[in-house]
Amino acid sequence: MMTIKMKKGSPHIDKIFKYIAIGAGTYVVALVVMLVVNLSTGSVQVWQHEGIGFLTGSDWNSVEGRESYGAFPYIMGTLVNAGIAMLISVPLSFGIAMFLSELSPKLLRTPLAMVVELLAAVPSVIYGLWGLYVFRTYIQDWIEVPLHNLFGDQSIIFAGTPFGLDILTASIVLAIMIVPTIASISREIMIAVPNSQREAAYMLGATKWEAFRLAVLPYSKSGLIGAVILGLGRAVGETMAVTMLIGNTTGAAAIPTSLFQPSQTMASIMANEFAEASQGGLHLAALVGIGLILFIIAFLINVIAHFLVAKVVKSHEGAVLA
């Protein structure tokens, strides 16, 4: 039997280490619990006032004496906005990651990967300002006006007055913002696939694409899902850039129907109205309530992701986890 001799004094260090670790672990749990408690108690008033109608209603009126709140348009706005952003950014990010891990010349890999990571560090207000002052006009002149003229007001998704501050612009800029996040994580995961897997595929006569599909993709699937979920998390919660670009309508007008229509997300309405909502009033409770819904949605996304990853891991033993 083997024993490991401890140095003098180390039991204390061991204890200290234990308490620090427990403290750090408790901190995370305590933070989440306090968050939920605070969001719940802060929004009690609006749930009492509106009931389930707070989730399904689309009225948003904070004028004293006529108050009425419904979060439905902003829930839809968030989901549609993040959904379109994901549709654009996921294929693009996987393409970047594939190029960097499989196709690009060795010399280019590190500098390109660094550039991608650098993009992830650009603050969102920069993307927002760029979108507002530069990108918006391109979208308006080159995409929205031609599409609108081609399909007209009859087509639902291209209806409305195209002026560039709408769901489409906000989604595209959001997509640009989350590409670096998804791409850099996906690249790490693809690189982590052991070369023996690729070599085995090539040995069987696979082309580059076949090797990727048969060897790299199955091996890294769960990690890639993790990368997508991280991107989605950022898309759902992104505030600054979206607020600057989405047009910020309230009430029923914010329910997204057309791509060329201003809307509002949960994060942006909180950012817009929080500072002026009167203390202890129903308006503030409604905004906190929206925070609670956003928290629950983010939580659900994570739970679903967890199950997805677990499922994939089961079917592919030894897959790389992000």
């Binding site: 002026f163 309508t249 009430g251 817009n272």
Partner: peptide, 9 residues
Amino acid sequence: SVPWQAGMG
């Protein structure tokens, strides 16, 4: 802040 009937913010 009021329930606007038209426009964007």
